[in-house]
Structure formats: C-alpha cells, structure tokens
Simulated scan of single mutants.
Amino acid sequence: MRYLEVRVAGWLSKTCVAIATSLMLVTAGCSGGAQEAGAKRTDFSIGWSIYAGWMPWPYAQQAGIVKKWADKYGVKINFVQVNDYVESVNQYNAGKLDGVTVTNMDALTIPAAGGKDTSAIILGDYSDGNDGIVLKNAAGLADIKGRTVYLVELSVSHYLLARGLSTVGLKLSDVKTVNTSDADIVGAFANPAATAAVTWNPQLTEMARLPNAKLAFDSHQIPAEILDLLVIDTATLKANPNLGKALAGIWYETIGLMQRQDAAGAAARAAMARMAGTTPEAFDAQLRTTHLYGTPRDAVAALTAPTLAGTMTKVRDFSFSKGLFGQGATSADAVGIGLPGGKTLGDPANVKLRFDPSFMEQAAAGTL
C-alpha cells in the first residue's frame, strides 16, 4: 500500500534492520543475481527502490541513457527494481546484486557491519525535509516527552528522532517507541490515541495533514546527515572500473536532463513520477525536500568536505549504541569507514565502507 491521493510511492522502508524476510518480487530482467565479486566481467545488476532521489536510475534505463554509457565502456548494466527497500539492501548484502541505492546509515549497518566491503561512488542527495517528526496537539517538539512514538525502529527515522530530541534537551529514554512498518504507519497515526510518529515522504506529508497534527522537526534541521548513495561491491568495482565510469556518466547525464527548466526536463520528471506511481506535481514536491547534488563538482565538494567525518561519527555512534554492529563489536570504532583523502574513521584494519569520489571526480573533470 502506498499513501497520498494518487498512491504516491515515495521513500520505501529506509530501514537499517537486516531482517530475514522472504524475497520480494523483482522486476523482470534480474538474471539470478550478481556473479562472483572480484572477477573481471561485463554484466552487472544494480538494485533500486522507489524514492524521488533514486528515480533517475530507472528513467535512464528506460530512456536509453544506461545503454549509451554501458556500450561506451563495454559493459551491460541492468537496474533491478526491488519492491521493498530493506530487501534490496539485503539482496545486495547476500551478493545477489552488484550494487544498490541506499542511505549512508544503512550502508554502514547492513553490508559494512556484516563484513561486506562496500564503496559509495555516487552521492546523489541528502534528505532536506523528506524525514520528519509529527505530533498531535503540540506546540513544539518538547511536547513529545513521555509520549509513545510510532516509527520504523533502528532506521533513519530512529536516528532522526534521537537527533531531534537532542535539540530540545531530551533523550530517547524520555519517550517510548513502537516499531511500525512504513506500510502501516499512516493508519497507526490516524488512530486518535496515537500522538507522535516519525516517518519519511510520502507518508510524512499525508500524516502532517491529519487534524491537529504538526510537523515538529524534520531533516531540513540536520542538513547533509541522511545521505542517499549508490554503492558497489568494492571487489567488483576494483576488478571492473569501467562499471564505475559508466555509472557516473549515466547519473550526471540524467541529472542534467531532469534539472532542465524546459519541455525536455519536464518530460523527464513526469516519466520519473509515473515510475514512482505519482503525479508530476507530487513528484516535484518531493524533489523540493530532496537536496540533489546537481553537478559532479558539487557532489565531490560535499564528499570531500570535513563535515562528512562529523556526519559519519554521529551515524556510527548511534548505530553502535543500538547494537547494529553486532554482538562482537566493542566500540563504535569496530567498523572502519574510509573517507576521501586516505583518512579513516574507526578501525583502519577493518575498513568496510569506503567513500570513493574518484568516478565523480572524472565526471567533474570531463574525462569520462
């Protein structure tokens, strides 16, 4: 079930809990999963789920942009839709996909924490209001104290709640949380007894419209902390650098097209909206709360800025505090995070998440 008047399919389950669920239906074209990591080859599968900032990928496949760049580099790339976000990350983690669209937190807590060496090669956007805390009958966020909060536990929603509480001098222990799936959260919050919830768009917009509801805090207040990425298995990328080059070319040609303020740009965004199950107007509204890095230069600047270390420190500290690094982890340093410039956050002997700007740098230099 999707929410909004026209069955908007926006952010699906940006959840970091690696639960063992049955495989969801995958669109035709998935050939049975990724091949052996580290082998030199030509065919690759990338998983995606519906979210405004990720819709350029399937659009590029439909429009022939994927084939154009794949042909240039002698590869074949299939973008595979997975109907549930967390399942797409689980399939990548299991080696069924060579790459996946994912948030920075989930890249850390699912594949990286599970021992899968993963490289983030495209920084697409950050949530700039797409995630939020909604309260009923409240003057402000401080009124959340003592309330029961509905959310997808141990997800970016849980992280957003912790960050929001810290701005009003509260802690997670000051509220009670109830784990609620993204499919059920709108209905749960519609119950008169429910007075607090955390979610993402499009559910967030729908819930904020309910009687006496107020958007008390959103990701616009913690800019560049919830990052949306394309990640690739590091061994696969190292053996097949042309995959990274093709993906960077695909992304920036498509982003350039969708940002055009002419008929071609409008047509591209309208096609993305149809793929997301919504209207062009609703899709454009979601884009307004999605800070797209519109050029490779902008993305490289963001990824190489000192603020990335601070962001990932907050994310890893929260993740460790919730036990998301596994029982064997004794500190937040357990999982190493490779930052641009050769710096490492955490254990340098166990780097499992790498922020690799090299392909975006090639796009910025015009050398793809």
Results as ranks from 00 to 15, higher is better:
97 L>Y: 09
58 P>S: 06
136 K>C: 06
76 K>T: 14
139 A>R: 08
217 F>W: 03
313 T>L: 00
299 A>G: 10
119 S>Y: 03
175 V>H: 07
315 V>R: 01
171 K>H: 14
100 V>F: 07
286 Q>F: 11
86 V>D: 13
29 G>D: 15
120 A>I: 00
268 A>C: 04
5 E>A: 15
295 T>L: 10
199 T>W: 06
145 K>M: 10
207 M>E: 07
282 A>D: 14
54 W>Y: 15
61 Q>V: 05
103 T>I: 07
192 P>H: 10
290 T>N: 15
163 R>K: 14
362 Q>C: 01
212 N>I: 01
273 A>V: 02
344 T>D: 00
344 T>Y: 00
219 S>H: 08
162 A>D: 15
292 L>C: 04
156 V>K: 07
158 H>Y: 08
311 T>W: 00
166 S>H: 10
176 K>Q: 13
307 T>F: 03
204 L>V: 09
82 V>D: 09
176 K>E: 14
279 T>A: 02
223 P>V: 07
72 K>Y: 04
220 H>G: 15
53 G>W: 07
149 V>P: 04
363 A>M: 08
363 A>L: 03
366 G>Q: 03
63 A>N: 03
179 N>P: 04
360 M>R: 01
217 F>Q: 08
295 T>C: 09
213 A>P: 05
99 G>V: 13
308 L>R: 02
351 V>Y: 00
158 H>Q: 09
166 S>T: 12
93 N>K: 11
144 I>L: 10
29 G>Y: 05
92 Y>C: 04
235 A>G: 07
227 L>R: 04
141 L>E: 12
165 L>G: 06
353 L>M: 06
252 Y>V: 05
52 A>G: 09
232 I>G: 11
296 P>L: 02
19 I>V: 14
233 D>L: 02
208 A>D: 11
68 K>P: 05
140 G>F: 01
96 K>S: 14
86 V>C: 10
19 I>K: 15
206 E>R: 10
145 K>E: 13
273 A>G: 07
197 A>G: 13
117 D>H: 13
150 Y>S: 14
255 I>V: 15
180 T>R: 09
221 Q>D: 07
228 D>S: 15
367 T>M: 01
123 L>A: 07
208 A>E: 12
203 Q>I: 03
280 P>S: 06
333 D>Q: 00
4 L>I: 11
266 A>D: 11
338 G>L: 01
185 I>L: 11
314 K>L: 00
101 T>S: 15
259 Q>V: 06
198 V>L: 07
139 A>P: 02
129 G>A: 03
63 A>G: 03
254 T>H: 02
279 T>V: 03
219 S>K: 05
36 E>K: 12
221 Q>K: 13
299 A>W: 04
302 A>F: 01
282 A>V: 12
5 E>I: 06
41 R>D: 08
41 R>N: 10
